[in-house]
Lab assay of single mutants.
Amino acid sequence: MIVFVRFNSSHGFPVEVDSDTSIFQLKEVVAKRQGVPADQLRVIFAGKELRNDWTVQNCDLDQQSIVHIVQRPWRKGQEMNATGGDDPRNAAGGCEREPQSLTRVDLSSSVLPGDSVGLAVILHTDSRKDSPPAGSPAGRSIYNSFYVYCKGPCQRVQPGKLRVQCSTCRQATLTLTQGPSCWDDVLIPNRMSGECQSPHCPGTSAEFFFKCGAHPTSDKETSVALHLIATNSRNITCITCTDVRSPVLVFQCNSRHVICLDCFHLYCVTRLNDRQFVHDPQLGYSLPCVAGCPNSLIKELHHFRILGEEQYNRYQQYGAEECVLQMGGVLCPRPGCGAGLLPEPDQRKVTCEGGNGLGCGFAFCRECKEAYHEGECSAVFEASGTTTQAYRVDERAAEQARWEAASKETIKKTTKPCPRCHVPVEKNGGCMHMKCPQPQCRLEWCWNCGCEWNRVCMGDHWFDV
């Protein structure tokens, strides 16, 4: 396979590697080409510095992935760790964990309700045991953590790749202090920090972006993250068709209702045909949960890209028209025109101005929308079919299609509260000796007794199943 190397943020060049090629071997190839010592090179990928003893497969490097290699003399205490030698983080029983690669970060837990604080980093599902597709590297999971809308060759929703760059020099040479644990960490600028490894760059702020994971991409090709779309790892039924499908869209209502993408497309087109989208002054033209839940309008309007190009163009047109109407304007009634106009409040005669090729020149009556006339309008008909009709959803289907309910059931079956801080902690095999993952707590306690870890627990039921 081919990976592209950008040395000291210059133009990239291809390097041929195998899945079992080590990072140090990659350094040696680059060092020979650039005429520099291999031990002064640092390989940066997806916000993480890659260790010498890791392989291309370990690092989730795919065909035509772009890695950054910078030349920086080692500072005291760094060289041993980078070589894969006596790194205290690798000691058996050590409590410190390697910062998780962005290629394996899962933010789907952050669609849980606000009262489930902490689960994004504490609760991990076991539903990723799908067998890898044919042709994928051994052991590589097909679980997708992110979804994007690819405006490039795909023109559809695709699995996405999370990447990070330095907000100062805009190069992907920043190593994160810690990985993101929720969508806010990724979507809110300057929320996460790190250290830029580019020479002479003092940058410390992280800037995240997404790429389409279905095809090789260049540095400049980015895609918009659709953070309401998630892999259906909890096997929730769709609120409309009641099938279990994946991926799904999880509405931001209190129940976190789930809808499959085909039904979401149908829901949007139906509402669009009836012009029953909601115009929100802050958000724009949007839709609420299909069950009509309060405070559930979709905030990231790129989710409506699921409509496809033709329907999305209609959505944008109707949204612009609705904006004009909300501002007190009118639409030209001549067939084939429909231009938005903003006449004076007491102006009865409205002319669709033909300047700049935008208007048709038609003069019409503001009251009856017919060709302009003197005197009273002959008839004014009330528009028919403008009443909002509820999208029919079966109550039982709505009850079963809740992301929140599956989460709470998982928590109930696989977790116990920490005796000190009461945060839910998952036990997935292993011994009875637990350690609270909350940095402010870190209590060592017994899963069996529910009390602080002691010699009695150690001698009596340390390794009970």
Rank of each mutant, 00 (worst) to 15 (best):
G94V: 12
E353I: 08
T242E: 14
L331T: 05
K412P: 09
Y143H: 08
W183A: 01
T231Y: 09
E353C: 06
S181M: 10
P133N: 10
V423Y: 13
Y318R: 02
E374S: 07
C377T: 02
C212I: 01
V269F: 02
G194T: 03
D346W: 07
H265E: 12
L228T: 02
F264E: 00
G118H: 08
H433W: 04
L26G: 00
S255A: 12
L261Q: 03
E353F: 06
E207I: 05
L358I: 15
T386Q: 11
T103R: 11
S246A: 03
R275C: 02
K211F: 12
K76V: 15
Q178Y: 08
R163S: 15
V456Y: 15
C418W: 01
P153T: 11
Y147L: 03
N235D: 09
K349L: 09
H303R: 00
K211H: 15
T217N: 11
P88E: 12
R234G: 06
N448H: 07
A134Y: 09
E353P: 05
C260S: 00
M458G: 15
S233K: 11
D86E: 13
C451G: 15
W447L: 03
G118I: 02
K413R: 12
G357H: 13
D280Q: 11
L287N: 00
L187W: 03
T270A: 05
I298P: 00
V248P: 00
A91Y: 11
Q311E: 06
E310Q: 09
A46V: 03
W54F: 06
I306W: 03
C352L: 02
C196I: 00
A383C: 11
Q438M: 04
L162H: 01
N81Y: 15
D87H: 10
D219N: 10
D274F: 04
G359M: 09
Q440S: 15
N448Y: 05
T240H: 06
G93Y: 11
Q400M: 15
I142A: 12
G203F: 01
C268T: 06
S233M: 08
H215K: 01
D18H: 11
S198N: 14
L301R: 06
C446M: 01
V465T: 03
P132E: 14
N254A: 14
S255I: 04
H227D: 13
V258R: 01
M327S: 11
P199G: 07
P133R: 11
S193V: 12
A206T: 03
G114P: 14
G160I: 00
S22R: 11
C182G: 10
E370T: 06
N144G: 06
F209W: 09
E96N: 09
D394K: 06
E49Q: 03
V121S: 15
N8S: 03
W54A: 13
T222R: 10
T103I: 06
S384F: 10
G12C: 06
V278K: 08
E367N: 12
N8Q: 03
L249W: 02
C377R: 02
R104F: 07
T351P: 05
L119H: 15
P216V: 09
E321M: 07
R234D: 05
F304P: 00
E321A: 12
V70E: 04
Q438I: 03
A225S: 07
G329S: 03
Q57K: 12
